[in-house]
């Protein structure tokens, strides 16, 4: 594998900087965000590189579990931050974390133990990147779906209540919205699968090929990952939508928009 120097990276950074500079006039505010995001990328990835290095040297289950939980906690915060109208109290955080935990962790365990079958199964070289990809995609699906759900419930309050008034159950009253919401959570991964290999070469596979792996082997890994991501993101979104719909209504099947608050 060809080693990258810091000079190589700063050449790439110039590109981002150039974009920020040219966007400064027309899109004020965006340039700043771009620079901050780029800096975050550098710092966060450098840190995780160091953490992974230490972790690989000392591959205890406890450490792997600890890092996984930290990743889950941060993903939960991210889901919450992306809601325009979020549930009050611990719910907006809880729904995301519980759904991601149930889906991503189950799928990761399944992949590590049944599919990859390493010894020991929690070997961090496999466990952490796998979980990271699962969590990231599941987080996106859940964040999109929840945002759409709370927004739709707010905007279509009149229709939902009109159906309740006619004696429809909450499931019936929410059926149309639910469909759209689940769809919007799954669209990114469906699109990614549809375009894979034809329009885009997925990132992980590209990485493996750049690192010198045999393309056919890299493809196999990519297919595995995409299916796992689909399962994880799909079931995670399903769980999150289910929990959120339940929370939107009370025991007398009243629409409880007072359980939502607008975030800035």
């Amino acid at each position: 594998m060809i080693q990258l120097s810091n000079f190589d990276l700063s050449l790439a950074a110039l590109l981002v900087l150039a974009l920020a500079l040219s966007a400064r006039r027309m899109y004020p505010g965006l340039a700043g965000q771009l620079v901050v995001a780029a800096l975050r990328t550098v710092i966060q990835l450098t840190l995780i590189g160091l953490v992974l290095k230490a972790l690989f040297a000392n591959a205890g289950l406890l450490w792997v579990a600890l890092l996984s939980l930290v990743m889950l906690g941060i993903a939960g915060r991210e889901v919450m931050a992306r809601q325009h109208r979020r549930f009050v109290g611990a719910w907006s955080y809880g729904i995301g974390v519980v759904s991601m935990f149930v889906s991503s962790f189950t799928v990761a365990l399944f992949a590590l133990i049944v599919v990859v079958g390493n010894e020991p199964w929690y070997q961090p070289q496999y466990a952490i990147p796998l979980l990271g990809m699962l969590l990231g995609n599941t987080m996106n699906g859940i964040a999109l779906a929840l945002d759409r759900l709370t927004q739709s419930a707010w905007e279509q309050r009149g229709v939902i209540e009109a159906r309740l008034m006619l004696g429809h159950s909450t499931q019936q009253a929410m059926s149309d919205i639910r469909q759209q919401v689940f769809r919007s959570g799954l669209i990114p991964i469906i699109n990614a699968m549809a375009a894979a290999g034809v329009v885009s070469l997925p990132g992980m596979m590209t990485g493996q090929i750049l690192a010198g792996a045999e393309p056919v082997e890299a493809v196999k890994y990519q297919i595995l990952i995409m299916f796992l991501i689909t399962g994880g993101a799909g079931f995670g979104t399903m769980a999150a939508v289910h929990l959120a719909v339940r929370r939107l209504f009370d025991e007398r099947q009243r629409l409880r928009l007072d359980r939502l608050k607008r975030s800035n």
Partner: peptide, 19 residues
């Protein structure tokens, strides 16, 4: 049960909604 209640106590709001 709430669904049954709302079928028997039917409310027609001033503005109707259609889905």
């Amino acid at each position: 049960v709430p669904t049954q209640w709302r079928r028997q106590v039917g409310f027609l709001p001033a503005e109707s909604r259609w889905w």
